[in-house]
């Protein structure tokens, strides 16, 4: 199986979405809307729910399960207000000492005129800044595509997990081939060298855990993967909640501070 086969599975319309996992793993999800600044971005969903009796904040980037929903969700490409809504809910979680669980599935932050006018770069930057020092646990799970800064804005977390067939990259393989080789038809080749699969990123130390899917992808046995997510959260949420806040935040700082290879 080549890396690009994971890309194809990750992008499938039948791929379970953030709301599918939220409904399965949590009880009594109450969706909360809007960034309080400009609008409510339907590409990002978020709210409060119960996890085994613990109140949690859950946030996801939501792709559509059909064309109509994809249009509503802007194909899972958030505008700045989507990231600002996510940040508002994260700050709210901090206030009420709730852990945050994020489900990431986006080809990337939306590239458009309105997104630029309203500060797409600033919105992502602010999420990285605030998440790096958020005084409550954050777990992010890449469930499909983890597209660059648009994914990172919900994945500057204490723990980052990936489903087996999900991908996480600085740029799509098509974009990568286009920039480096001026040839976007070489995406499969690009995917091979980019190190974008869950296994590659686990080996690189970028993520803590790979969550299994049945052969062919999570859509073929949704409950199998969803139950694994739930079981892993059952261990990790209490473990992170038991850490003193200062230690939690310092560990998160060190997690990201440690990334990079250089010679001197």
């Amino acid at each position: 199986m080549r890396a690009y086969d994971n890309v194809k599975i990750a992008r499938q319309l039948a791929r379970p979405t953030a709301l599918d996992y939220i409904d399965h793993c949590f009880e009594g999800f109450i969706e909360l809307h809007g960034d309080r600044l400009f609008a409510d971005d339907n590409a990002v969903v978020g709210g409060i729910a119960w996890f085994n009796g613990i109140p949690v904040t859950v946030i996801g980037i939501q792709k559509g399960r059909d064309t109509a929903e994809n249009i509503k969700r802007n194909f899972g490409c958030a505008h700045p207000e989507g990231y600002r809504k996510a940040l508002r809910l994260m700050k709210q979680a901090e206030k009420f000492k709730r852990p945050v669980v994020c489900f990431v599935n986006t080809s990337g932050a939306y590239c458009g005129v309105g997104a630029e006018e309203r500060g797409q770069g600033e919105a992502i930057a602010k999420n990285l800044f605030e998440l790096s020092r958020l005084k409550t646990p954050v777990i992010s799970i890449i469930i499909g595509e983890g597209g660059s800064g648009g994914a990172l804005a919900l994945a500057t977390a204490d723990r980052v997990w990936m489903l087996e067939n999900s991908v996480y990259a600085v740029l799509s393989p098509e974009g990568f081939a286009s920039i480096l080789w001026k040839d976007n038809t070489r995406a499969e080749e690009a995917a091979d060298i980019m190190k974008i699969t869950a296994k590659d990123l686990y080996d690189l130390g970028v993520i803590e855990k790979v969550i299994d899917e049945v052969p062919g992808g999570a859509h073929l046995d949704f409950e199998f993967t969803a139950n694994l997510i739930k079981h892993n959260l059952e261990t990790e949420i209490p473990a992170l909640m038991s850490l003193p806040t200062e230690e939690l935040v310092e560990n998160r700082y060190k997690r990201f501070r440690g990334f990079g290879e250089y010679n001197e």
Binding site: A125, L128, L131, S148, L204, V206, F256, F259, G260
Partner: peptide, 10 residues
Amino acid sequence: GIISLMQMSK
């Protein structure tokens, strides 16, 4: 690749 992306958070 991904290591450059992580520099944004760092």
